[in-house]
């Protein structure tokens, strides 16, 4: 039954990869639109997870409510991050806001340990355990819901980015802030919205991860944000579709890797792949359009 095992590992990898993709996509949106890197992304994931956890506790097993809760909680934290770490430092050298986000991430992590408790919490079983079979492929309902949520969210985002005036405003800010101000875009407000969209994606991903692994903790974000960073690097840091592709690839490689070794080597495979990728193709999958050859 080796092939069966491989197939289920591919499904697991895809599911995991979709979550990474959602985080990476948020990261790419933030870096692209604000123009500054963030190291608070992992903590946003954690906040999103806790927000949905408490909503599930209070309101029962309502996935939509949990999603809304993690979306809005991380959106609000996104506003705070923007006001604290970015707004005053847009003109300053990049490392200042970068260090500011590192500091804020420590603050959030430790506050979370005080407020939520340092121990791991079991996530409620929101989705009942059920397995669908499509020929040789077996997908659990949890995986189904996760993939569905990611697909719906990312396509909505793609539509907003590529088809609406809002999207044109966001993209023009990411390409040239000064010119964007000159065509009448409120650059500060638009970058804040960009930052919040990125954070909200991470928050929802936090909820999905909580559901997938059945546990959440204040330090859950650390490795996840590194994974997202790797995935975004594969996509050249700012390209949204390629960053998501990077996430999926990373998830697949991890799960195929552990299927031939043990699960404790998970991170070895994903970060090893990142290193190899950076050595041989440092620009990631990106091919710039709009540049004259």
């Amino acid at each position: 039954m080796l092939s069966q095992y491989i197939i289920s590992q591919v499904v697991n990898g895809l599911c995991q990869g979709f979550i990474y993709a959602l985080i990476a996509l948020g990261f790419a949106v933030i870096v692209g639109i604000v123009g500054l890197a963030t190291f608070t992304h992992g903590e946003i994931i954690m906040i999103g997870a806790y927000a949905s956890y408490y909503i599930f506790l209070a309101c029962g097993h309502n996935l939509i409510l949990g999603l809304l809760a993690s979306f809005s909680a991380s959106w609000i934290v996104g506003i705070i991050i923007y006001k604290l770490c970015y707004e005053r430092f847009l003109e300053a050298p990049e490392h200042i806001s970068l260090i500011c986000t590192i500091g804020f991430s420590m603050l959030l992590k430790n506050l979370a340990q005080i407020v939520f408790g340092a121990e791991k919490k079991p996530m409620l079983n929101v989705i009942e355990n059920q397995i669908y079979k499509f020929g040789p492929v077996e997908i659990s309902k949890v995986q189904f819901v996760i993939m569905g949520t990611v697909i719906v969210l990312s396509t909505t985002m793609m539509i907003i980015f590529n088809k609406t005036k809002w999207g044109i405003a966001l993209r023009s800010v990411s390409q040239n802030r000064e010119a964007a101000a000159l065509v009448g875009i409120n650059v500060k407000q638009t970058s804040m919205i960009g930052n919040c969209i990125g954070c909200a994606m991470a928050g929802v991903a936090g909820m999905l991860i909580g559901i997938y692994y059945q546990s959440i903790s204040p330090t859950m974000g650390a490795t996840l944000s590194m994974k997202a960073f790797s995935a975004a690097t594969l996509g050249g840091l700012t390209s949204v579709p390629l960053s998501s592709l990077g996430g999926v690839v990373l998830g697949l490689i991890e799960n195929l890797g552990i299927s031939i070794s043990t699960a404790s080597f998970r991170d070895v495979f994903s970060f090893g792949f990142l290193i190899i990728m950076l050595i041989f193709k440092p620009t990631g999958f990106v091919k710039r359009k709009g540049a004259r050859p």
Binding site: I168, R171, S172, Q175, N176, E178, A179, A180, L182, G290
Partner: peptide
């Protein structure tokens, strides 16, 4: 204000 050096959005 049409800025110096055009400053159009290259990827739009």
């Amino acid at each position: 204000h049409v800025p110096e050096g055009r400053k159009i959005f290259p990827e739009l």
